[in-house]
């Protein structure tokens, strides 16, 4: 059994916080308490940039009158040539979880979704790295996690 570095009380193996003094026994992420999570999505070909503030869900697709998904905001990529680039009407779902993690889910699109050359399995949320190149069909987007 080891001891707590803060109060020298004996601690059980596997504890994350000392039971006597509450001190951390693992590195604590200092920015853990930031409540706003933002990311930036840009369409490479047209330099259009969209800042997304989480938590939230965004449906990436094209076309007017496309019904969005429950609780998701629809992002219409038609102005950037989505149709010609093979983007489906409901192509992929971008999510920022309440904990600030970003996920991309392919919605069984016709031409597929790639994150940094990895093809996503349909309907399986894929955790996005801080910076990622997203490809919807042929359209290339850049994902950038801004804060925290």
């Amino acid at each position: 059994m080891s001891v707590c570095p803060h109060c020298q009380a004996p601690v059980v193996e596997g504890l994350l916080f000392c039971e006597e003094c509450g001190g951390p026994l693992v590195p604590v992420v200092e920015d853990m308490y930031t409540t706003s999570f933002t990311g930036q999505l840009s369409v490479l070909a047209s330099q259009a940039t969209l800042t997304l503030e989480g938590p939230g869900r965004w449906l990436l697709g094209r076309g007017r009158g496309t019904a969005s998904l429950q609780g998701a905001t629809f992002i219409d990529l038609s102005p950037y040539g989505a149709y010609m680039e093979g983007v489906s009407r409901r192509h992929a779902l971008l999510e920022i979880s309440p904990e600030g993690r970003a996920y991309l889910t392919d919605l069984d699109s016709s031409n597929g979704t790639w994150v940094d050359h990895i093809r996503l399995q349909p309907h399986r949320p894929f955790p996005l790295p801080a910076t990622a190149r997203i490809r919807l069909g042929r359209m290339v987007l850049q994902w950038q996690h801004l804060s925290p």
């Binding site: 998904l69 093979g86 489906s88 069984d108 042929r138």
Partner: peptide
């Protein structure tokens, strides 16, 4: 949709009809 050269293996399986919950 427009075909994409890099992805000739585009899934032959069904795309869910877009009116249904996907």
């Amino acid at each position: 949709t427009i075909p994409i050269p890099e992805a000739p293996e585009a899934p032959a399986k069904a795309t869910t009809p877009e009116t249904a919950p996907i």
